[in-house]
Design a protein around this nucleic acid. Structure first.
Lengths: 243, 243
DNA sequence: CATTTGATGTCGGAT
DNA sequence: ATCCGACGTCAAATG
């Protein structure tokens, strides 16, 4: 049986469904009027309202209102769900340690409770990521500049790994930082850290820093200019083709 | 009626429910075997599997598998949902412009389709954010250091707004960057940008930069040291009380 | 609109 | 376990 639904169940009947579903690894949704308390990395309190609560077998909890992509409250994977009935009302508690965090969802009315058997073997295939941009540049280094020769990716430095490392046509070391979208000041700072670290390794060699991205903000452009870093425009990885 | 559910509906019946719900601002979930195609800022393809699809009246779409806090695919608020039946199968399409993005969810089997009336007037009250940390420091500046006098928050500089700006007991300008949790190299770089900008405004005054956070990573500590920036430990805003 | 930054960010990969 | 950076990040505040 793939889906089991209770419509306007008693809190005790809902409890039975949840305990059964938590026990055998099914996903659960409960819709109804509830309040939510969270305490952990931060703390929050949410008064009564109608929400959709999703409990996943991996320990995730999501509390969704009718707005926004983000849940209003949640618990990440790795938590332990427990359901109980106190004073005739359903409570879903989800906890974890390190960090210590607790989420309580208290229902005053339950419109629907559902358990789902989920079979899903497919993996998402995504294109247009920074990884794809890197591959494009390795395939055609002239996209960066004529004569550029990549020698390493994710090359370790004292400041962390550099996206693409190589040499320009004059043999100078080149640090390339890739961004899949328009960048702000933080990307310029990141590139700066890498260049400074590589400069320590190759003193007197005039290490160059290149920010490869579709575009930069004004402030980032000013920062790059001040730091003698260079911006190389590239087409965005996937242009959302209007039609 | 607050919740309307169809169990193993025909695709055409599910279509009716969705069109009705999209029309009068109800939230919808559909659970079943589906495939998902996305094209926009990036592009993705997801083969068949059982997922919970949530459509919100604000234009949000979420496609959730039985794992992870994040939906495997989604559409942000502001999109327009449309449902249709092609070759006897339900498709939910959600689109927006600027940027041009499209999400298609194609069902081959529908286990359940539900529409919800959502009433929710409560707002989340959250404590433990960076904002709270700032308030704590304004209330008791000695948490930063004895004699520190804050003079402004969100003070504008050429590099952007500084969290807290003030003077130390010797009258030197102080730039404070706040973080609610353990910080890495990027926070040190951020503070550096602000200090350099303020230094341009107050040359020769020896502007100090203080990173106020619960802790720092080794690399960040080394970076701060190298840049003559200071780390000030503070208790995290909400200590997850173990018990 | 675009920019900037925080977030209970989440997530994956590497150490 | 921690560290680090990407993310179709999202979301809010601000110009």
């Amino acid at each position: 049986m793939s889906v089991t639904t209770l419509h306007r169940p008693t809190h005790r009947d809902a409890l039975g469904l949840l305990e059964s579903a938590f026990g055998d690894g099914r996903m659960v949704t409960v819709f109804g009027r509830c309040s939510v308390e969270y305490d952990g990395r931060a703390a929050s309190s949410l008064g009564p309202g109608d929400r959709l609560v999703v409990c996943k077998p991996d320990g995730t909890v999501l509390v969704h209102t009718d707005e926004n992509r983000q849940p209003v409250n949640w618990q990440p994977p790795g938590c332990v769900h427990r359901a109980s009935v106190r004073d005739g009302r359903l409570r879903i508690r989800s906890e974890r340690s390190s960090p210590d965090e607790r989420l309580d969802v208290d229902f005053e009315r339950i419109e629907q409770a559902t358990a789902y058997e989920v079979r899903d073997r497919s993996d998402l295939r995504l294109t247009g990521s920074e990884e794809d941009l890197r591959q494009r540049i390795l395939d055609d280094p002239d996209l960066v500049e004529p004569g550029f020769v990549p020698t390493a990716t994710e090359r370790e430095t004292a400041a962390g790994p550099v996206d693409v490392f190589g040499e320009d046509d004059a043999g100078r070391p080149v640090v390339v930082e890739l961004k899949r979208r328009r960048v702000g000041p933080s990307a310029a700072s990141q590139l700066r850290r890498y260049v400074e670290a590589v400069d320590e390794e190759f003193p007197e060699e005039g290490v160059r820093g290149l920010l490869v991205a579709p575009s930069v903000t004004d402030r980032a452009a000013a920062l790059l200019d001040e730091l003698d870093l260079e911006f190389v425009p590239v087409d965005p990885p996937e242009s959302a083709a209007p039609e």
